[in-house]
């Protein structure tokens, strides 16, 4: 990685940290407030690409592990990794990587606006939701003893909120791609 790549990774990790400090966003049409931090994970892949996006998320996970309160609500420390939902946090790294991989392959400057939106949305949904939930639910099942099927199903209630985040990530990623493109092209 070049110095510029390291700085981009660190700055994006800092953006994810700051997204955790903001008050939760509320949308008019759904009652549940949304924390913006996992939105940052989708954005990391869509804006920086697979490698740098995953590195930014890994850096945030590292900051949590070394005892800094960087997660939303000022959470942090090793206790987060001991809990049943640690898989969602570790899943950020793989999630951002897959998001970036899909975005790098699909998004082209020559595409129509609609195609770019569709590509970013697909990347955010598959990587930021699919992969993150896969790892999150696997860990949750392992930690939750006999009731692993029930807890796995219960965790799906967060999917609608995450779909909204994927939608916001799509709009934001396309706007950044137009204003300051950083996403590498992969063929």
């Amino acid at each position: 990685m070049s110095t510029r790549d390291i700085v981009l990774v660190a700055l994006f990790a800092a953006i994810i940290v700051v997204l955790g400090m903001l008050p939760p966003i509320t949308f008019g049409f759904i009652p549940v407030p949304i924390t913006a931090q996992s939105l940052g994970v989708m954005l990391a892949g869509c804006i920086l690409g697979a490698k740098r996006g995953a590195a930014a998320c890994l850096l945030v996970v590292l900051l949590v592990a070394i005892g800094l309160p960087v997660l939303s609500g000022g959470r942090g420390g090793l206790a987060v990794f001991a809990g049943p939902t640690a898989g969602y946090l570790v899943g950020w790294v793989a999630g951002a990587f897959v998001t970036g991989l899909i975005a790098e392959r699909l998004v082209r400057d020559s595409q129509t606006e609609f195609m770019q939106f569709a590509s970013f949305f697909l990347a955010a949904v598959v990587g930021g939701i699919g992969v993150v939930y896969l790892l999150g639910i696997a860990w949750l099942s392992f930690m939750s003893g006999k009731a692993f099927v029930e807890t796995a199903i219960a965790s799906l209630v967060f999917i609608p909120g995450d779909l909204i985040k994927a939608f916001v990530a799509m709009l934001a990623a396309r706007a950044v791609q137009a204003g300051y493109p950083l996403l590498p092209v992969r063929t």
């Binding site: 700055l11 800092a14 953006i15 850096l59 900051l63």
Partner: peptide
């Protein structure tokens, strides 16, 4: 990278 995050998070 860790140092940069701690330095720039307040700025962001």
């Amino acid at each position: 990278a860790v140092g940069l995050v701690l330095r720039f998070a307040p700025e962001i």
